[in-house]
Nucleic acid binder design. Structure first.
Length: 297
DNA sequence: AGTGGGACCTGTCCGC
DNA sequence: TGCGGACAGGTCCCAC
């Protein structure tokens, strides 16, 4: 599911119920996701307060009062839902009383956080490509999953010269280079296709053509950086994209899928003004690429 | 060292 | 209706 705009949308949904709140109880319904969960996962969370909820690349990062960081990744199919559990709070305060559980657990609800804010936060992930890890804050940047991650595309540091340098000696396509988290963090299949279309660049073009022989950015590197920033901003503003069952934490759908120009639009007319092309689907690196062979060069 | 391909999972959809 | 195959928003590991 989730690329940078979706993860950022999730972060914004979780922050109000997590930041400043304490984990009162943590339920683990299986021992592993993509990786084994730490054996002391529950003990290291319960009683801790979330001091801040951030994002790096496609990772959500919850800073804890203990000094640990809870790293969370949604993989392909992970999602968080927030519900209020006022009844359960009342039940804790008045032992012996009986209250109905308000929610029904769904299949693949692997982790449940009960927060002192009264929120119940449920992580659901059918394919289990997601992960949760606990890492001491001081070690986060050197963690094997983090240390190679490239620049944040919405940060000021991400600019044409940086992108050109990262691509200058690559033998791969633009599609593969932009999908590589070491080159730029947070893009995935959808937003790579969308950014390349906005920049009118072919996904098949050699990534090295973003730089001159001396490694300087070409005008197409400038255009591409602008396109990446624009499409990510637009998507975040729309609450991300909702394909299949992907939802925001409040259960509402994101809207950006209605603004796709090429993704999953094989055979449709190219939306570029004045272009008479039709969107084509090809396979690169085993994944679908959508693009207009007429205006994307 | 960089690159492509397969592997990891489950669910859904489409054609027969 | 059932069944097999293709495909899905990610990324890791392993051969070349």
């Amino acid at each position: 599911m989730p690329e940078l705009p979706e993860v950022e949308t999730v972060r914004r949904g979780l922050a109000p119920v997590m930041e400043g709140a304490r984990f009162t109880r943590v339920e683990l319904n299986r021992p592993d996701l993509r990786l084994p969960l730490p054996k002391d996962f529950v003990q290291r969370l319960e009683g801790e307060t979330v001091t801040g909820l951030g994002r790096r690349a496609k990772y959500l990062l919850a800073d804890l009062s203990s000094g640990d960081v809870l790293m969370m990744h949604l993989g392909m199919s992970g999602s968080f839902r927030v519900a209020q559990e006022a009844y359960e709070q009342v039940r804790e305060e008045t032992p012996g009383a009986y209250y109905h559980e308000r929610s029904t657990a769904r299949a693949h609800d692997h982790v449940v956080f009960h927060m002192s804010s009264g929120a119940r936060i449920t992580f659901n992930d059918p394919r289990r490509f997601g992960l949760m890890l606990l890492v001491p804050r001081a070690e986060l940047n050197e963690h094997r999953l983090m240390k190679e991650v490239g620049p944040e595309p919405l940060g000021n540091a991400f600019a044409a010269d940086m992108l050109a340098r990262a691509c200058a000696h690559k033998k791969t396509s633009l599609k593969a280079a932009l999908s590589d988290q070491k080159v730029v963090a947070g893009l995935g299949n959808i937003y790579v296709c969308e950014a390349l279309h906005r920049a009118l660049l072919s996904p098949k073009r050699s990534a090295a053509t973003l730089a001159t022989r001396s490694g300087q950015p070409t005008p197409r590197a400038e255009k591409l950086v602008t396109a990446i920033k624009d499409v990510l901003h637009d998507a975040i503003r729309a609450g991300g994209s909702s394909l299949r069952d992907h939802r925001r934490t409040d259960g509402e759908l994101g809207d950006f899928q209605h603004n796709f120009r090429v993704y999953d639009r094989e055979g449709k007319p190219c939306p570029t003004r004045g272009c008479r092309g039709k969107i084509k689907r090809i396979v690169q690196g085993g994944r679908s690429t959508f693009f207009c062979p007429v205006c994307q060069r």
